[in-house]
Amino acid sequence: MQDEEVLAEFRASKALLEGHFLLSSGRHSAHYLQCARVLMDPARAARLAIALAQRIPRELRKDIVKVVSPAMGGVIIGHEMGRALEVEAIFVERPTGTFEVRRGFTIEPGEKVLLVEDVVTTGLSSREAMDCIRAAGGKVIAAAALVDRSAGSVDLGVPFFPLIAINFPTYAPDELPPELAATPAIKPGSRAKP
């Protein structure tokens, strides 16, 4: 799947938003990719997961025995990646602010894991999820995401395979361009406060 085809999937599902957004990283952007919307159609989610799985080199794919994704945003794409790779898919979550393996899920000692995210911007959540996987005994051998918002600069410490890398500029709160500073920020992600 080429980049324009991926973006067409986001546009078709009205998941590519424009405005003033406060990202979960604390940075601001004029663009937001709402992966939950692009994944709400099971057929589209399956297509995207298959395309993402194909980005991972075959020799690495054959070693993956489990997909782990961080809740909430990574759950659907993680599940679909498990299906595409024909392995189990579980998720980690933050009931008290730190990722934990819960709900009867297990990661066996030495189990080779693929971390799957919806969007990676700074990589902080990915690294925190990988710390949880390692603490549970797993070995993260690669990471994958639908979208890399870091413009290729994120270092997760393992091979990283995004379906698409997007270079929408992001800004710290004290460096907003005038057009963003003039409008209130919307926090559309799963960590938005009501």
Results as ranks from 00 to 15, higher is better:
L33D: 03
E80F: 07
G19K: 05
H79D: 08
V87C: 00
V87N: 01
G97Q: 07
D155M: 12
G82R: 14
I186G: 07
N167I: 07
V113M: 13
M81K: 05
R191F: 13
K187M: 15
P194R: 15
P169H: 15
G110K: 05
D118S: 14
L146A: 06
I56N: 02
F160W: 07
S13A: 09
P109Y: 11
K139T: 07
C132G: 14
S125W: 06
L23G: 10
E80I: 01
S150V: 08
P70Q: 12
E18M: 06
R191D: 09
F91P: 00
P57W: 03
G26S: 10
G104Y: 10
I166W: 03
R58A: 03
A49S: 13
A136G: 04
G19I: 04
A49V: 09
G157F: 14
E80Q: 08
T98F: 09
G138M: 03
L156K: 00
K62I: 12
L176E: 14
L176A: 11
A165E: 09
E4C: 04
V154Q: 02
S29A: 12
R149G: 09
S150N: 02
R102W: 02
Y32P: 15
M1Y: 14
A144W: 01
P57V: 03
L115V: 12
V67P: 01
L180G: 12
C35Y: 04
R134D: 06
L85D: 08
V154K: 06
C35V: 02
A145M: 00
H20C: 08
A53C: 03
D63S: 13
